[in-house]
């Protein structure tokens, strides 16, 4: 990464500016992000993208998590990349369509579930055999599962009569799933970092008994552990994206499971450290809590952790 002319920091900065812009014009979010090129980083140059690896979209996803962007940016990026060169891919890249991914269900099972922003998205990827199909959400009825997040509900759909726009074969679907794992890890790392920074700022300003709350050792140690967990999670993802000395690529699963368990810890603790403030809807920490929890269930973090353990046992 660091050898390239564009540094990750520059991507993060550009993404940050675009996201702030989008947040100031919520109706135009998709257009603003598309125009800023956020969906194009990891799309092949032949198909209108910047032709960079998925690791260059990591700062975009991490910044989106940190700034609490309420848009399926990870899904849009990986779908634009996977469907590059197709009509749907072009529409995703250019911001003419919003894409989401159903993390439960399949065409065969006849339903799709755990699709973020599905009630407002246009197309949805759903498992299909050992590959996946991109379906037109106009062809099915999407029900909102608003239990956890009324403002940004997950979607559930019966798939009878679903119109398939494009397909991914098994290899392409596996590649997309790896991209999803990487970018969601980055997104939740960003969420953790944002929650940590907000807490540190708040506690440096909040006065009790004549000193800032950040002077209290208990508070300092909570923040230190949040920092440690977040640094470890970021370093773990960074490492997963680098080849080893023998030019072999690395598995990315622990980068996601580790990012998620840290982010749950950090965001919950950030709410706690904000006291009554943290429990209000006004303070936006709960958006990150909902996002992180939704990703955790969508990607079945518990089952993945178990699978990582089982794989280690089998290999030992």
């Amino acid at each position: 990464m660091s050898d390239d002319s564009l540094s990750p920091e520059e991507f993060a900065e550009a993404a940050g500016a675009a996201i702030l812009d989008a947040q100031s014009r919520p109706e135009e979010t998709r257009d603003v992000l598309a125009e800023a090129g956020l969906f194009s980083v990891s799309v092949a140059e032949d198909h209108g993208g910047m032709g960079l690896g998925i690791e260059f979209s990591v700062p975009v996803a991490q910044t989106a998590g940190e700034k609490q962007l309420r848009f399926p940016v990870v899904e849009q990026i990986v779908l634009a990349r996977a469907f590059a060169g197709t009509e749907a891919g072009e529409a995703l890249l250019g911001g003419a369509l919003t894409g989401t991914i159903a993390f439960a269900g399949s065409l065969e099972a006849g339903f799709a579930a755990r699709a973020a922003f599905a009630t407002t998205a246009d197309v949805m990827l759903v498992a299909d055999g050992d590959g996946a199909a991109l379906i037109d959400l106009g062809s099915v009825t999407v029900e909102a599962d608003a239990t956890l997040d009324p403002e940004a509900p997950s979607g559930f759909a019966r798939l009878e009569g679903a119109k398939v726009l494009a397909r991914l074969d098994a290899a392409a679907y596996a590649g997309l799933k790896r991209d999803v794992t990487i970018l969601f890890a980055a997104f939740v790392n960003g969420a953790a970092e944002g929650a940590l920074n907000r807490s540190a700022d708040y506690l440096a300003q909040r006065v009790q008994f004549g000193r800032p709350l950040s002077a209290k050792q208990a508070v300092r140690h909570h923040l230190a552990r949040m920092k440690l967990g977040t640094e470890v999670a970021i370093a773990r993802l960074r490492r997963a994206l680098l080849d080893n000395e023998f030019a072999e690529s690395r598995a990315v699963e622990t980068a996601l499971t580790g990012a998620l368990s840290n982010a749950v810890f950090v965001v919950e603790k950030a709410i706690h450290l904000h006291g009554g403030m943290g429990f209000t809807e006004e303070l936006p920490l709960h958006y990150s809590l909902r996002d992180v929890r939704k990703i955790e269930t969508a990607l079945q973090a518990g089952a993945q952790t178990r699978a990582i353990g089982r794989a280690f046992i089998d290999a030992a």
Binding site: K216, H272, G278, F279, L289
Partner: peptide, 14 residues
């Protein structure tokens, strides 16, 4: 979600 408040109100855990 509500349980997030339980370690806060009526005196935090700290």
């Amino acid at each position: 979600l509500f349980a997030r408040a339980e370690t806060i109100y009526a005196g935090t855990s700290e």
